[in-house]
């Protein structure tokens, strides 16, 4: 099915031929055979993928493609059934999430996790690494950590100024708008001086007025020498800022390529437009809601068999009830449970 692809065969980032799971010239993350199953359902099944260092990589795909689950696996927030992956050459499989973060791989969350009853500044300071005052006994003796704390405050203030949050410094994070929380979360991640920043849907729920500055901030990260990997639905953002795009569908990496051409890739078209092709959604409205999870699963099973679907189905033909079904897709379950 990749006969009709318009993606170029080679690319400066790629070592060899462009394609799903292709080798990169200078990878920072290399993952092999990562599988995560929920019950009988395979949410993630990534055979091989590499993330290029020093660039902005977008991870896209339809709802339920396993993007967030893959994120959770890479950062240690979820355990895979099997698989290996490494970050800067050292294996990260089964490393707990906080140690992943300490190695310089810091993530944000789809549903913003600003710490509401801490002030913006306290949120920022929490991001700083190797704080002496974070030990139980050292905490009692202020002289031990006073200087380090002052340095961290200074750095936090610089970052807050850069993200235009300096006016909110002493406010509780709960009082910020959705977009400001996204910014705060990003700024907080930067406090730990990461080498790889992983953003889970940075644009979700952001006021359009803030979109441009958020884009600039993400680009700024690359200029500061960091690698960025983000999950996004907003194709505008993907096209504007990413250097490389990885497409997931049904848990697998189905395509890779530069943003200019990736949307013409046949596999991508299949993934996006064929996703709900052969499920009889008309009957779903009359289903008992208790069975919707099972419906979603059945739908997925149907999709798995739906290889080689004709492109050209009208997306508009997808009836409304598709949305709740997609909401219940397994990809999002771990998030819900962590409430």
């Amino acid at each position: 099915m990749s006969d009709t692809t318009t993606t170029p065969r080679t690319h400066p980032l790629v070592d060899g031929e462009v394609g799903p799971g292709c080798k990169k010239v200078d990878p920072i993350v290399v993952a092999d055979g990562v599988v995560r199953q929920f019950g009988g359902l395979t949410a993630v099944d990534v055979a091989h993928v590499e993330i290029p260092r020093g660039h902005i990589t977008a991870l896209i795909g339809p709802n339920g493609a396993g993007k967030t689950t893959f994120f959770n696996l890479l950062t240690g927030f979820d355990r895979p059934n099997q698989g290996q992956w490494s970050f800067e050459g050292s294996s990260l499989a089964r490393v707990p999430s906080h140690k992943v973060a300490r190695k310089g791989m810091v993530r944000t969350f789809q549903l913003t996790k600003s710490l509401g009853r801490l002030t913006v500044l306290q949120n920022m300071l929490l991001g700083a690494r190797d704080q002496r005052g974070e030990g139980l006994f050292a905490a009692l003796l202020k002289p031990l950590w006073k200087a380090q704390e002052a340095a961290n405050v200074e750095r936090a203030d610089q970052l807050l100024a850069r993200f235009k949050l300096d006016a909110k410094r002493e406010d509780y994070a709960a009082s910020l708008s959705g977009g400001q929380r996204k910014l705060l979360e990003m700024a907080r991640a930067l406090m730990s001086e990461p080498t790889l920043v992983m953003l889970d849907e940075p644009m979700a729920g952001v006021n359009p007025a803030l979109t441009q500055s958020l884009l600039d901030h993400v680009k700024g990260l690359k200029d500061d020498g960091m690698t960025v990997l983000f999950v996004e639905h907003d194709m505008h953002m993907v096209r504007h800022i990413s250097d490389w795009v990885i497409v997931m569908a049904e848990g697998k990496v189905v395509a890779e390529g530069p943003p200019e051409t990736i949307m013409q890739d046949q596999a991508v078209v299949d993934a996006y437009l064929g996703a709900h092709h052969d499920t009889d959604l008309g009957t779903l409205t009359n289903q008992q809601v208790a069975q919707i999870h099972e419906e979603a699963d059945a739908e997925r099973d149907a999709e798995l068999e739906a290889d080689g679907i004709e492109a050209g189905d009208e997306p508009a033909a997808t009836p409304e009830p598709e949305a709740p079904a997609a909401e219940a897709a397994p990809e999002q379950r771990p998030e819900e449970e962590q409430r």
Binding site: T75, F77, S97, H98, A101, V106, R107, T108, F109, K113, S114, L115, G116, R117, L118, Q122, N123, L125, L126, G127, Q131, R132, G133, E134, G135, L136, A138, A139, W145, E149, E185, R188, A189, M191, S192, Q338
Partner: peptide
């Protein structure tokens, strides 16, 4: 800073873990 971490955990432990 110890107390800050503790209070952060109260708010959202995943966020603190990610840091």
């Amino acid at each position: 800073p110890w107390g800050r971490v503790i209070k952060g955990i109260r708010e959202d432990e995943d966020a603190v873990r990610s840091l």
